[in-house]
Structures are given as structure tokens and as C-alpha cells.
């Protein structure tokens, strides 16, 4: 019998735990040429902002070992175009829409939440707090305990009760647990982790930085161990909080690793650039991985590694 892959995104039940990752799937339309977007757990949209945004100059991306750096700068058409064009399209295809929002002030986030609450069909909101806060000298919200909490509180207050709010955390912090706790205290129904890590590449031929924006976000399998660690730490500290895990998942096995660390959903990002049908492939592979281990329900393995410490480190065996 096929394993039961149903999972909970806050109060909302999803048929399976495989999602797209924000910024790696647009609003689903391009991927629909290769996959049935209604078959995956949800489409997490590219972060939507209030106003249209042109993004950063090119070059915007560079391949790195088992990963890539990107500095796109949140190019997008803004919330009006999203509500008019992208959201209705996703719903017409039977997809569940998790809308990622980004802003440069707390009020911008709150306004986006209100706009999305007025629109029918939003499954959840993912708050991309890895944006510079213009009211705090450009300090990234996600790197500050107070700012993270302020954004989440403002979004939660303006979001319809039945729409779960997830905060997307940056791993570029000293203590991710304190940020996670601040977001949950502020009303987050769950956490998404991890966003990209800040990185940089220099072309040794031209001796110049490769990216026009100098630095960029590192993603791909290169960062997966960091994702596993972050999910592990937060699950350990806040065991009841649902987690959407992401960070370099290329296969069903990789997804299972994040699930064992504590994620009850997994977003697939960079893998989609490599393989446009990665989400449905990973979903199939995850099902096989679970079936092969005789596991009937996905929920039985969420965070399971916390109960299965390495054998050599069991109590009494430490020298």
C-alpha cells in the first residue's frame, strides 16, 4: 500500500509534502508546461511585493560547486498584477497557492497580507523576512530578533484567521532558534527554513566580482547540511511548530533527510532549474523511500531522527 503522504500546513491539509520553493517556480505557469501543478502539495510563489520591481542588474547568477549564487533582487510585477493574473491562474489549475510576500517596511508586509486576505483561494502566506528593513538602516529583518517578530506580528494581525502564516528564516544568523522563537511568539503558525546564505564569487580571469550585485544567495545541495542543522535545532527547541524545510533537495532521499530532521513539508528550489519536473520526481522518490522502509505514514517520520541518536553516542558509550 502506498504510504499516506498527507501533511498539515497549519490548519490546512495538503495531499503531500512536496512544494516549490519561493523564487524558483515563478507563479507556476512556466512549470505547468512540464508538470501538473495540482499534483504537488502546493506552489510557493516568487515573493510578491506591493509595487512592480525591476530587480538587480545582470549578471545575476553564477554556478558554484553543487550550487549557485543568485542576486535577482525580487524582480516582479507587484501585488495588483499578481492578484489579477497569477493567483487566478494557479487556482484555475487546481493548485494550492502559498504566497510569499516581501517588503521593505513592516507596514508593506502588513498591507500585502491584507490584500491577500481579501482575495479568495490563498492557502497560506510565507513571509520572506530576508529583505533589508529601510527603517532600520537596511538591516535584514531576518537577522534581528525584534524586527523578525514585528513583521510576523503585523502580518498575522492583518491576515484572515484561516490562512496560516509561515516565516521564512535566514541561516545567516548567530542563533536561528532565537529568531524562530520570536516569530512563533509573534504569531507565526509555522516556519520555513532555510533561505539562501550570502555568498560571493570572483572571476579570477577578469579579477572582478562575478555578480553585478557583488554578493548573492547561495543555494543548492552545497547548503543542504546547513538546512538539516537549522531544522534540527529549531525542531529540538520548538517541537510543536510545523516546518517547511528547504535547502538543496535534489532527490526523494534528500527530502526524507529534512523530514527526519523535523520538516513536515519540503520545498524544492534550485533542483527545478536543473530539472523542471523535479518536484513530481522527488514526490515519487519520497513515496518509494518511505515504502521501501515499510513506513505507512509520512507523519510517523517527521522529526524521527531526534529519537534515533547515533548509536556510538548513546548514553554510557561516550568516553
Amino acid at each position: 500500500m502506498a504510504p499516506d503522504l498527507r501533511t498539515k500546513l497549519g490548519q490546512v491539509e495538503l495531499p503531500n509534502p512536496i512544494l516549490t520553493a519561493s523564487g524558483c517556480a515563478g507563479a507556476g505557469r512556466e512549470l505547468a508546461q512540464f508538470i501538473d501543478v495540482s499534483k504537488i502539495g502546493a506552489v510557493v510563489t516568487k515573493s510578491v511585493m506591493l509595487a512592480p520591481r525591476a530587480g538587480r542588474p545582470t549578471p545575476r547568477m553564477v554556478e558554484t560547486p553543487s550550487g549557485m549564487l543568485n542576486a535577482i533582487g525580487l524582480q516582479g510585477p507587484g501585488i495588483d498584477a499578481f492578484l489579477q493574473r497569477d493567483l487566478p491562474w494557479l487556482l484555475s489549475r487546481g493548485a494550492r497557492a502559498v504566497v510569499s510576500i516581501a517588503g521593505s517596511t513592516v507596514e508593506e508586509f502588513a498591507e500585502l497580507a491584507a490584500r491577500l486576505s481579501d482575495a479568495p483561494g490563498v492557502t497560506a502566506i510565507e513571509v520572506n523576512i530576508s529583505c533589508p528593513n529601510v527603517e532600520h538602516r537596511g538591516q535584514v529583518f531576518a537577522c534581528d530578533v525584534t524586527d523578525s517578530g514585528s513583521v510576523v506580528a503585523a502580518v498575522r494581525a492583518r491576515t484572515r484567521r484561516d490562512i496560516p502564516v509561515f516565516a521564512k528564516l535566514s541561516p545567516d544568523v548567530t542563533d536561528i532558534v532565537s529568531i524562530a522563537r520570536s516569530c512563533v511568539t509573534a504569531g507565526a503558525d509555522g516556519l520555513s527554513m532555510i533561505n539562501t546564505l550570502l555568498g560571493m564569487a570572483i572571476d579570477t580571469e577578469t579579477m572582478r566580482p562575478v555578480l553585478a550585485g557583488l554578493t548573492g544567495g547561495l543555494s543548492g545541495p552545497a547548503i543542504r547540511p546547513i538546512a538539516v542543522r537549522c531544522i534540527w535545532q529549531v525542531r529540538e527547541a520548538l517541537p510543536g511548530v510545523p516546518i517547511i524545510g528547504m535547502g538543496g533537495v535534489l532527490t526523494g532521499r534528500d527530502a526524507l533527510e529534512l523530514i527526519l530532521a523535523g520538516a513536515s513539508m519540503v520545498s524544492v528550489g534550485t533542483a527545478t532549474f536543473h530539472d523542471p519536473s523535479a518536484t513530481v520526481r522527488i514526490l515519487r522518490e519520497l513515496e518509494e523511500e518511505l515504502a521501501r522502509r515499510g513506513i505507512d505514514r509520512l507523519s510517523d517520520v517527521v522529526g524521527l531522527a531526534h529519537e534515533m541518536r547515533p548509536a556510538g553516542r548513546a548514553a554510557g558509550s561516550v568516553v
Binding site: 515563478g26 545582470t58 535577482i72 524582480q75 527545478t272
Partner: peptide, 16 residues
Amino acid sequence: EESMACGIGVCMTCVL
């Protein structure tokens, strides 16, 4: 000939 990454319109790398 802009440098591209995904080729299908989702990554926003190849803009001009």
C-alpha cells in the same frame, strides 16, 4: 546571447 540558467523562464537570470 544572454547567459541563462533555467531556460524556461523561472529563474530571472537572463533579463535585458
